[in-house]
Nucleic acid binder design. Structure first.
Lengths: 86, 86
DNA sequence: TCCTTATATTCAAATATTACGATATTACAA
DNA sequence: TTGTAATATCGTAATATTTGAATATAAGGA
């Protein structure tokens, strides 16, 4: 196991806002504005958390005009989320 | 899902030393001295990481004379580890 | 008792993370 | 163009985490 890499992913998931984001993006694609509204957090906060998740490879993004749509990319993360959901 | 609780567990697992500890304690019970030797880290560092894992409910400990033996307690954590191991 | 071993706790410095306002960038529409 | 909406990035203060030496505690043996 690559401990540095795997622990990095767990650490990134280990924040309540990011965990909510990832759960919400498991089945739906969603743009930043919607995400910040749903989670009721400032735009820069939303953007930064999404940025971290993307850097870690958890999410991927797609441009759609002005909007940026995020969704879960990582199979392993998907499996972990299923476990957390019970 | 309890986001605070679940993200807390992921955060605790999200450290390379702690991830190594948990993996090593999946199948074997082990005392602190052995753990610090195997991981080649100072005693206080080992003890603190083990303390965090125990506080989070990831590990349980058992007294055996002077020794304290740790092992993985949490079923969910066990499942997550299996995913990480591929 | 005194010594030794095993473990936990305390403390402080170094480092990392988080939050969010302010500012920059980008795309599109008027 | 100019304006506006969507997103990213910057700056930075507040907070949290990590590390390891020093110290405390606890158990067993001589």
């Amino acid at each position: 196991m690559d401990y540095d890499k795997q622990s990095e992913i767990l650490k990134i998931l280990g924040h309540p806002i990011r965990l909510k984001m990832v759960e919400g993006l498991m089945n739906n694609e969603c743009n930043v504005n919607k995400i910040m509204e749903v989670l009721n957090i400032p735009q820069s906060t939303a953007s930064q958390h999404l940025g971290k998740l993307k850097s870690a490879g958890v999410l991927v993004s797609r441009k759609e005009g002005v909007r940026i749509c995020y969704k879960v990319a990582d199979k392993q993360v998907r499996d972990i989320m299923k476990i957390l959901q019970g």
